[in-house]
Amino acid sequence: MKYFIRLALAAFALLLFMVRNAFAEKLNKQTIHLASEKPFDPFQLLFIADIHRRTIKADLIDFPIDLIVIGGDLVEKGVPLKRVAENIKNLTAIAPVYFVWGNNDREVDETSLRKIFAHYGVTVLDDESVSLFGNSRLKLVGLDHFAYKPDGFDNAFKAVEVGDTVLFVSHTPFDFWKIKGPYSAELLLAGHTHGGQIRIGPFGLFKKGSLKVKEDRVELISNGFGTTTLHLRLGAPAEFHVLTIKPKLK
């Protein structure tokens, strides 16, 4: 009998631990250097993805940020638009916000979402690029992967010129292998996988989120800030990222 009681207590403790991980606010801060033919001023980028049902607190960040990128799945079916608006309000109070669509975002009314974005000045990257900080050679490129448009990449990189320093964001990291040749980028950002969400040691449905510095670029895959279906995490805690980005002249 004692064995079963201990087992039940251990299971309950594990469940509480997984719930705590699901609602953590782990901030990963890293400095990266991006290869650049033209110098740019260093800046701070906040990357957050897979918010889903979570609430973003007004005091999430208490230090200066230059821009925020939402890597998709801001919302999912059943989330009140009032909560979405409050989350966007809190983020735009920190810095200018850029958004790409995830697979769950269009489970709610897209027109209503776009109205919220327009009200708070969020820039939606629908297969397009924007120049950052008035620097025409520093660009943020956003792909609407789950629209499944055959010309999505062509449109997204249409205004990118040879020699530009490019930050690329898609909801899914399964686009990363396509970033080569005419679609080159120095920084790649994605979420979607939740880092596997529940991992048993090294094993999970997907690889754990990571930042990898490669020879020609930096790749960041986030575990994500929220959860879906099961609001539990093990081995892949909820997280968001602040990157201090500096130029590395070629």
Rank of each mutant, 00 (worst) to 15 (best):
R20Q: 11
R20M: 13
N21I: 00
A22G: 02
A22V: 03
F23E: 05
K26E: 15
L27N: 05
L27M: 14
K29N: 04
T31A: 12
H33F: 15
H33N: 02
A35F: 13
P39Y: 01
P39M: 03
F40H: 06
D41G: 00
F43E: 04
F43M: 03
Q44W: 10
Q44G: 00
Q44T: 11
L45H: 01
L45S: 01
L46A: 11
A49N: 06
D50A: 06
I51D: 02
I56D: 01
I56M: 07
A58T: 14
A58H: 15
L60M: 13
D62E: 15
D62V: 11
F63I: 00
I65S: 07
D66L: 06
D66N: 14
L67Y: 02
I68G: 00
I68F: 08
V69H: 03
V69S: 03
I70P: 03
I70A: 04
I70V: 15
I70T: 02
I70N: 00
V75L: 12
V79E: 07
P80C: 08
P80G: 06
P80V: 06
L81W: 05
L81N: 10
K82Y: 01
K82T: 15
A85R: 15
E86M: 12
E86K: 14
E86Y: 02
N87A: 04
K89M: 10
K89E: 15
N90G: 06
N90V: 08
N90Y: 10
L91Q: 08
L91D: 05
A93K: 13
I94E: 06
Y98K: 07
